[in-house]
Design a protein around this nucleic acid. Structure first.
Lengths: 126, 126
DNA sequence: GGCGTACTTCGACAAACTTCTAAGCAGGAG
DNA sequence: CTCCTGCTTAGAAGTTTGTCGAAGTACGCC
């Protein structure tokens, strides 16, 4: 038929071979989130009220020392996934949506037009 | 207006804190793709004509020995991201869409109804 | 100034990862 | 059967990563 072919998996990763440099860049990003602690940290920061979380809010959820949490936050920050700012006594972290969206675009670029440019999403408030 | 609120980043990872067990499972999956070589392997397999690629097709693109490629393929297979089958002389690998979609759903669940179930996509042939 | 709290940096160490060489197994060809 | 090719397994070396304790920096309070 003349209908578009149905492809089982259409993530961009499965559309054309990834260039070497691109793969290296994305792998670095993926390595930053490929850890249970960092995944939870990212999730806690992103879902926290106001869009930002104090380190003190995060530490209590883990059986880890403060230096370890600080290390993981640094890995996420170095990767560009989060951004931190000191305000008075506390340090607040916030998600960097552009970087997170790079990962989303890798595996599931449902919105084709947006995939190549800025990804702006709307969600119904539950 | 009555329109739904626009949220900057709406990946599920930023909607509610990830449970510990869930984070561990996803981190294992992410660790499997968090490597430039494996990312390219996955991409080459997924984008290969017929949806599957022989190991011999993959090896030549890398400056690595055959055992190393074999090792990376095993990591991807153990994670459930690809599946391999021997046919005669050659071994063919194929992507497992369900597993790849888990990653896509993590960071960019654009199709809300599909995100929780099976994701079936249509792509226009260029 | 001196002290206490919040967080980060430093230095160290065990565990895990990437890569290699060498050896093994499975199929096809002569 | 014997050899050759395609791929995997096994073992080892070097590097990276996750975690800790100790020390350092920044800020607010007395």
């Amino acid at each position: 038929m003349a209908a578009p072919a149905t492809i089982q998996c259409c993530a961009p990763i499965a559309r054309e071979p990834l260039a070497e440099a691109e793969a290296a860049e994305l792998a670095a990003l993926l390595k930053a989130v490929a850890d249970p602690v960092r995944l939870r940290l990212l999730s806690m920061i992103g879902s926290h009220a106001g869009g930002e979380a104090c380190v003190c809010d995060l530490t209590d959820s883990f059986d880890l020392t403060a230096p370890t949490i600080s290390h993981h936050l640094k890995v996420l920050r170095t990767a560009g996934l989060i951004d931190g700012e000191r305000r008075g006594t506390w340090v607040y972290y916030r998600i960097v949506p552009e970087t997170v969206n790079k990962l989303g675009a890798l595996f599931a670029p449902l919105a084709e037009p947006a995939a190549t440019g800025r990804v702006e999403l709307e969600l119904l408030p539950v």
